[in-house]
Design a protein around this nucleic acid. Structure first.
Lengths: 355, 355
DNA sequence: TTGTACGCGTTATCAA
DNA sequence: TTGATAACGCGTACAA
């Protein structure tokens, strides 16, 4: 950190060497543990380091070694909720001697951002958030021979390192769980990102596809609602169900905002959860379901795990590990089942309840 | 970014100079706009830069100029919700040519983290989150002559740059608003961080103090609940009110988790909001209130504003600006008032309602 | 086991 | 308006 002109000066390796009566390279060997050094010179050097408060200068190390020991986290700057996996990634990186730098990008200047990230030498590699099914950043980074790991997946993942939530497995589990409870008509709600910078993001698409496949395989009636973010989503979902899928007896939600409005609106319409309608949230923040009334059964997002594994994968790659790293992490099983129950018998269609 | 051994090589200033038939210094003058250069040599240089895809090397710039153009965001790594102001700070920094690096710290090794941040030269300055009333990081950074700006405030702010939410003004406004509606017994709920890494954090303490002062000045009965985070907080709050402050007719909440459980529990007890009890949330995420049922009137947190101003203040300081920067940002006024109303007349004490 | 010396890619000072 | 050149602090090949 730059100091305002004060008494403090930068302590250099040379000063440590002078104080310990050795050469600068010997200090380097000790500090980096790159060559054997006799016990007592090592001790003298460590003592000098301690007395002087010496720390290696990051820029000089980077310049000389051609490695910055920094990884960048690229994400669209419209994404406000940098949640737990950011911290997890930063913490894991720190544990491995790396630092995490935030790299917010506009949707439309991602190209130049990638270029400047790559060419400036600021970071050794990148973690990519909010990955789209077709993501231009991937080709750019690969062309630049820049190591990167996706937190997410593109459509074609051939030869690409990624760590992602296993939406497929989680969705299939949720559908199976509901089917076993006798539900015959299930609905899915996902975020609609069309027209936003997140358009084309993968989680909703993958979940929807798996949902349709699983429902079809089990002969279930199915309905998919795509709704924009925001507090109104839950109410809109109920309106859609009433109009287009009134026989629905179970809802799977990949739409965090909708959960609150959903249970609240159902209550106002005297639809009892889970007696009349089962609800299960997938890949939601762990505590979100408990804030609803009634609490919503949740397959919690593996946020910490995903952030940590992504950082560790990238750093392993930076350290020369070979082989493609492709890690899918399913959401944990719900810890409670308050909002799911057996399918109701002879329940009237949604919208026909006594109001 | 380091490249895996590939065809791409680092393009240096010297290569640009060679191609444009000028000296390396002239390239530097153009690139940094530090000295006037004749129009056509400038044009030749820019062309060469473009053709070669040249970018300044960050480490070399840092080493030579002794400025990294990086600012660090220090925060306790237990804080999972890096919300909007982190992105705001990162975006604002980027707009000014700086990068933001995440610096998660344990509670107990903050000392060594500060030291390494300062001495490594990785960052030019730091933004401090989750500031405590007595924060050891402040003295350390000042002793190291390292520029920093608090996102928050210590108890004694003499000569310290900070940007903070104006909890005092916001709290006073909320109390005044309720008093004008005739409320005579008001309660405050804040997060209890005793025993957590956030113990001693300032917002709760400042809000509580202002609340007590304002209530006393207006002759209002008052009650303060300090509750740990978590989904159970709202229910516990109601229990406390029933037991210790049953005449309360209005609640001010600086406890985001509690809001949901509060309205839900009141509903179950047939206490109507706002007819029987008014609720107002202060410094909460803008959309949080709308997710409750009924929606909670909210003084929204100035997250984006705070993050941006903090980053800009720090960078201004790095650019040599003089004078202490102390910026207090009040929360905006609520955009709706669905959960506040005139004080009820002759309402029975909480707990005595028909269940 | 330790020391010498060069190079990393810039910035900045001084001269031309 | 341009150019030469000395730092900046460290890593590392090579020499001793």
């Amino acid at each position: 950190m730059r100091r305002t002109n004060g008494p403090q000066a930068v302590v250099t390796m040379q000063q440590v060497a002078d104080r310990a009566n050795v050469s600068i390279s010997t200090v380097s060997f000790v500090v980096n543990d790159t060559k054997p050094v006799s016990p007592d010179t090592r001790a003298r050097i460590l003592e000098a380091i301690d007395e002087l408060g010496y720390r290696r200068n990051a820029a000089a190390r980077t310049l000389a070694s051609r490695r910055s020991r920094v990884v960048a986290l690229m994400y669209p700057f419209t994404e406000h909720h940098l949640s737990e996996f950011v911290t997890a990634a930063a913490t894991a990186s720190a544990a491995l001697g790396y630092r995490l730098i935030l790299w917010p990008t506009h949707g439309d200047d991602a190209a130049s951002e990638v270029t400047s990230l790559v060419k400036s030498g600021i970071a050794d590699g990148a973690l990519l958030m909010e990955v789209k099914l077709e993501d231009e950043r991937v080709a750019m980074l690969r062309d630049a021979h820049a190591p990167f790991v996706l937190m997410g997946r593109t459509r074609d993942t051939t030869g690409i390192d990624f760590v992602d939530v296993d939406f497929e497995t989680t969705t299939a589990q949720a559908v199976a769980q509901l089917a076993e409870l006798g539900h015959r008509n299930v609905a899915l709600v996902v975020e609609d990102n069309a027209g936003t910078p997140l358009a084309g993001h993968a989680p909703a698409a993958r979940t929807e596809q798996t949902f349709l496949d699983e429902a079809a395989a089990r002969g279930l009636g199915h309905y998919v609602a795509r709704l924009p973010r925001g507090p109104a989503a839950g109410r809109e979902l109920v309106d859609l169900l009433v109009r287009d899928a009134p026989d629905t007896t179970a809802v799977i939600s990949l739409h965090n905002d909708a959960n609150f409005g959903l249970v609240n609106t159902l209550r106002h319409r005297s639809v009892q959860v889970p007696r009349d309608l089962s609800i299960v949230a997938i890949c939601a923040p762990e505590t979100l379901g408990e804030l609803c009334d009634p609490p919503i059964t949740t397959y919690p997002q593996p946020a910490e795990e995903l952030g940590r594994q992504a950082a560790e994968a990238l750093i392993a790659r930076l350290h020369g590990s070979e082989g493609v790293i492709q890690q899918l992490i399913p959401c944990a099983r719900p810890s409670s089942a308050t909002s799911i129950a057996s399918a109701p018998r002879d329940r009237p269609p949604l919208g026909d309840e006594a109001q």
